[in-house]
Design a protein around this nucleic acid. Structure first.
Lengths: 201, 201
DNA sequence: CAGCATTGACTGAACATTCAGTCTAGATTC
DNA sequence: GAATCTAGACTGAATGTTCAGTCAATGCTG
């Protein structure tokens, strides 16, 4: 019945299906079925299939990021915050859905060159992510926690490293278990910034 | 007319189209048109659309890698070789086609979770790439050029970093021009292994 | 309050299109 | 002349989108 509930319900269904079948193979019928309704309703809420799927991607990434920020805010020191960000990308929680999160990124990337809407979602999130890293670095340097590296360069390098690790994790490469990716990324950050990485998780 | 020529011609046409429209939106008609022939012929050579596209991806990556290896063989020192590998991924040549090379990777990644054939192409290449890095590191260490880091860890980290940079380059992120990606990746490698990066390109 | 009008949520059936793959027959080559 | 190669016409299935309405609730009016 309710207006916003329906939209959200459909978006969640769409995310489910995209993770499962991939963006390209997600039919609106699938989404409708998953949400227990009819294709016509899906079109009723989102004018087109593409609008639905694009919104779903944005919704998913937004939730993921927002949840991360909330966790970050409760961590006092810069090193801890950075560690949490690395964990966010490398160590998928058991929370169902977060497992497939990175697969959405792969779709996002693949779609970006041809789909301006998707491209802007992608770029927006990338910029935000790099800024977050940079801000933490600057704060850490101001507090004397971190060495004096160039914050922008570091942010770009770390975010690229994390993206690369995320690919391996999303594809479940047997040579790159999440914990190893986490350890290596953390080692990089700690080495560059000169902090002691927290012990075993 | 000739057998192998036709196949190759069709594969090249397929690569062109995939780069332009993306894997999902590549129709066999497009490939046929690009090759100046009929859809039926495409099916004649490759039984199915999927077989065509998968082979095209493999073919493209194979050529790219083979060309790289040939160049590497003419470089005597390990540092120079590693630098060349970083350049290979970060600095697309003017050579038409190599520009869109990385977009194929994005498709490859996005397809992998659902398409076993594509997944094995992807994994095969990743393993090969990491091994190549590792071997160069080991050779460099044996020759006293490099510091004594763990070669496998380094290879995994560098390849992830390069993948991440490649994403930005493929998507032409304005904040990450190829040269900057190259400089940062090179700085990382040089820093870890303790060699002096070659000057300006 | 009783009847009427209006609106928003929703649906089933049809439409239109797009494509992968087939079929048949003709050309080329050895 | 047989095998290989090629094209044009076609088909069958899938699927996004439209559309004409149904249904329930809410507001309005006398």
């Amino acid at each position: 019945m309710p207006l916003e509930d329906r939209r959200e319900q459909l978006l969640l269904a769409a995310i489910d299906v995209i993770v499962e079948r991939g963006y390209a193979d997600t039919r609106i019928t699938d989404v409708a079925e998953r949400a227990g309704t009819s294709p016509a309703l899906v079109i009723y809420y989102f004018k087109t299939r593409d609008a639905l799927l694009t919104e779903a991607l944005r919704y998913s990434e937004d939730s993921w990021y927002a949840a991360g920020v909330k966790r970050l805010e409760e961590i006092p020191d810069a090193a801890g915050q950075l560690t949490e960000m690395i964990a966010m990308t490398c160590l998928p929680s058991d929370d169902p859905g977060e497992r497939g999160e990175w697969r959405l990124w792969l779709d996002l990337w693949a779609l970006s060159p041809r789909n301006p809407g998707v491209a802007s979602v992608r770029h927006e999130f990338d910029v935000r992510w790099r800024h977050a890293i940079r801000d933490i670095v600057l704060a850490g340097q101001a507090a004397g926690e971190f060495a004096a590296v160039d914050a922008d360069d570091f942010a770009l390098t770390l975010s690229a490293l994390l993206d690369g690790m995320a690919v391996q994790i999303a594809l479940e490469d047997p040579d790159v278990p999440p914990v190893r990716a986490y350890d290596l990324a953390l080692a990089f950050a700690a080495g560059q910034l000169g902090f002691i990485p927290p012990t075993e998780r």
